[in-house]
């Protein structure tokens, strides 16, 4: 059996698969790249040849103006330089995939980003047995346990009940988080129009085109201020404290992110309703997935790698941290 350390090379700018001359999620432009999902810290523009799911290609097309690339559906794959690549659902955002690579009898999985919780806007995570599991660890500390989403959504309705004249402004990353929050609001019975910041519109439209229905969406810009009392508005996190939010009547700021679990983080951003909603695996999901797959080795790409590394050590699981750059613990948690 081949030893992964001979054919898979972790570099600060991404994982390089030597026999195939392919990079996975490289942070700079490369000749050949497999892209796991459309978030900017994984999908960069300017690559020569790209393999990704059709949804990820569509998202990259929206962001970088070109959707050239080879679409690979979940469960399907291709071969290059003796390496068999296939993509498997990661449950992170629409189109997000794990990459399974098989070479000379060895199986290696790169998760990109993933979560195990149900999400009405994307396919669920598929556990893929492997020898080497190369995982993210955004929330690789035992303080991060995401509560059930229904309770978080209920916080919004509770505030609207005590302050019916306010407008609830939810900061949510434009790709994935925004649509998930909208879909969960719908599932909880909110059938009024939901208002969008201009920067959220195109991605929501794309989700609709790709078959995720989000109900009636309106632009804040097209709506008179007074009409937005008692309404829910979705905007990019950066707009929460932007001049833009001044056009809303009595805004109450909420933010949907796994980081909201820590009070200091919520306060730092001046968030009044912290919504602990994440598209990443929490501590229990990370450790549970490693237990379930029981790989021979676990490699950790980014996040709180020290914490997950320590857990592996305690459970006598072989693990190493890869120190990837450019994966930031920003707003997309």
């Amino acid at each position: 059996m081949a030893k992964a350390k001979h054919w898979i090379e972790p570099h600060p700018q991404g994982v390089y698969v030597r026999p195939a001359d392919i990079w996975i999620d490289p942070s700079g432009a490369k000749q050949h790249a497999v892209v796991t999902h459309g978030h900017a810290d994984h999908a960069r523009g300017g690559h020569g040849e790209v393999w990704a799911t059709p949804e990820t290609l569509a998202i990259m097309g929206l962001r970088y103006g070109t959707d050239a690339g080879t679409p690979v559906a979940y469960g399907e794959g291709f071969e290059r330089g003796g390496v068999r690549f296939s993509l498997h659902s990661a449950g992170h955002v629409l189109g997000s995939a794990q990459v399974l690579m098989e070479y000379q009898g060895e199986r290696v999985v790169v998760t990109g980003d993933f979560k195990r919780r149900p999400d009405p806007t994307c396919a669920p995570f598929e556990p893929v047995p492997c020898d080497i599991f190369i995982t993210e660890a955004t929330f690789g500390l035992p303080v991060f346990r995401h509560p059930p989403i229904a309770g978080e959504i209920a916080k919004i309705f509770a505030r609207l009940e005590t302050e019916p004249d306010s407008s609830i402004l939810i900061g949510a990353y434009a790709l994935g988080k925004a649509q998930r929050v909208i879909a969960e609001l719908r599932r909880a019975g909110w059938d009024k129009p939901i208002y969008l910041h201009g920067a959220q519109v195109r991605m929501c439209e794309l989700y609709e085109e790709l078959g995720v229905s989000l109900g009636e969406l309106r632009l804040v810009m097209d709506t008179p201020k007074e009409e937005m009392r008692g309404q829910i508005i979705i905007c990019p996190p950066s707009a929460l404290i932007d001049k833009w939010s001044r056009r809303l009547p009595s805004p109450v700021t909420a933010m949907a992110s796994g980081w909201m679990r820590v009070r200091g983080r919520a306060r730092q951003r001046g968030v009044e309703i912290p919504l602990v909603i994440s598209d990443h695996a929490d501590w229990d999901e990370l450790t549970g997935t490693i237990r379930e797959l029981a790989p021979k080795e676990t490699w950790i790409t980014h996040g709180s790698e020290d914490g997950l590394l320590r857990w592996c050590e305690l459970h006598q699981i072989r693990a190493r941290a890869l120190a990837m750059i450019g994966r930031e613990d920003g707003d997309d948690g």
């Binding site: 035992p142 303080v143 820590v262 009070r263 200091g264 914490g307 320590r310």
Partner: peptide, 20 residues
């Protein structure tokens, strides 16, 4: 060790214990 790492991340002992 997991506690120490978490404490550094959270920045507050009481909150770390409450969460962990």
């Amino acid at each position: 060790e997991l506690f120490r790492l978490s404490r550094h991340h959270v920045g507050d002992t009481a909150e770390t214990v409450a969460l962990i």
